[in-house]
Structures are given as structure tokens and as C-alpha cells.
Amino acid sequence: MFIEIIDVIISGLINGSVYALMAVGLTLIYGVSKAFNFAYGSFYSLGGYIAFLLFSIPFFNNYFVVLCLAAPVLLIFGFFIEKLLVAPLRKRDDWEVKVMMITLGLALFLDNSYQVVFGARMKSLPSMLEGNFEMGEFILSYQDVMIFIFSIGGILLFRWFLNNTRTGMSVRAVAQNPAGAQIVGIPKDFVFAATFAISTVMVGMGGILLAQKYFITPAGGWDILVKAWVITAFGGMGSIKGGLYAAFIVGMLEAFVGWYFGMTWTLIALFAVLLTTLAVRPQGLMGKWG
């Protein structure tokens, strides 16, 4: 019993860490540009498929090379998608709704493309590190440890970027005061595209990390989109700190509900908690009104 609970907590922590990496990306786009990206889940699958492709190439088939190549590919992909699809809409009336529609279209297009190119069957990635740490009945796989380290590393890197680079600071500036950002001469359009690109890398990396455990499927991103969205709303729209807390709460909740009631109950439990939270605090855990 005791060991089981420890296992559940660890599984919650590990999933929570990847959710945090991905939800922070979604929160970031919302916080900076007030746009909602429906294709976010498809970018998750894209990360997985890019890694799958790279692993099929001889000499490229190790995680170091895969991550180093996938990150820039995702970054460039995200940047151009924003420039081509989202940016032209921004000048129109009701652009938020139009962005939702076009990213929804993009999601369907991407998911069907995956099916055409890779087929409908599940794909998997090799484990980052084989083996287990064992202590009596307690077993911890090295793969889980690696997933945790890379997710937390990704979040810390992201935090460093926001606080210490000029582009990162301009991203925060636009999120906090768009008018002020314009006054000091920050090019808003570039910041929007950069934010979109960075969030694409974050969710794509999440896709690569989780593909070792949960497989890659053409429509697998929808579940992630829903979770990232729940976490973003739960943590407070646009609040990165709130998103971090919410991600770990959701990870834990999922692990405990799945263990005690069965996996089918996890989404129901998530929405129950989200709705209760929003009924009491409509702004989410850390969000601000207005």
C-alpha cells in the first residue's frame, strides 16, 4: 500500500512536470498575444513524429542529436506558422475567434497529414535510458527520471530566457503592457511570432518526452490540448506561475484518480476540479481580473 502510494506520487510528479512544460507554453501565447492556439496538441504530435523520423536515420538515432535537431525545426516551424496564418488575422475585427478557427483548421490538416505520411498505427520512441533503480519493493525507472529532468530543465531554461535575454524581456514587456512595449520600440509582431515559436518548441519537446511512454498517434494531440487548456484555465489565464502549480496538481490528481477509481475517471475528475475552482475563483488560481 505504502509503496503503491509512492509510485502514484512519482507518476503524478513526472506527468505533472511534462504537463508544466507544455502548459507554460500555452499560457505564454495567451498571456502575450491573447490568442488561443487550437493546433497546440498537433504540435505535440509533430514533436513525436519529427523524433520518430530522426530515429529512423542512421547516426541520428540518439536522443542528444534528436533533441538538438528537433528544437530548431520546431522553432522555425512555429515562427512561420504564426507569420503565415496568425499574424495576417491580427489586424481584423474579432481576430481572436478567427485565430481559433484557423488553428483548428491547421490541427485537422496536420493530424490528417500525419495519418497519410506515417499511417494510423501507433509509433513509439526508444527509452532515453534503460534500467531501473530498485530498493526493495520500490522501483523507479531511469526513463521516468530522465523525463523529469528534461522537463524541469526545459522549464528552467525557459525561465532563464524570459529573465535574462533581451527577447525574453521583450516577451514579458508585451505581456505586461503592450502600449508600454510599443513606446520603448519593441517590435510587437516579432514578439508574437517568437512567442508562438517558443511555445511550439515546448509542446513539441513534451511530445518527444512522453512518446517513450504513451506512443505517437495522428490524433493523440487532442488529449494534450484539452489537458493544457484545463491547466491554463485552472492556473489562471496568462499566469505562468499559476500554470506551473496547476500542472502538478493536475498530474497528481490524474495519478491518484487513475489509481483509485481507474483511468476512465481521470478526465471527469479533472473537469470536476476545474469547474469547482472556476465557480469559486473565475480567474483561476493565480489569474488577475480584467
Binding site: 524581456m169 514579458r172 514587456a173 505586461q176 503592457n177 502600449a179 508600454g180 513606446i183 520603448v184 520600440g185
Partner: peptide, 22 residues
């Protein structure tokens, strides 16, 4: 404004427009 600030023309707003969480 991004071009003009670069040329040396800067506006200082009446309502300040600072970045509050920085």
C-alpha cells in the same frame, strides 16, 4: 515607433506605461 525610437525619437507617456511586474 520601433523605427522612430531607433532614430532617436521617444515618447514619454502621461500615464507612464511602465512594466508593472518588472
Amino acid at each position: 515607433s520601433e523605427k522612430l525610437v531607433n532614430k532617436g525619437i521617444t515618447y514619454i507617456a502621461e500615464n507612464r506605461e511602465l512594466f508593472p511586474e518588472m
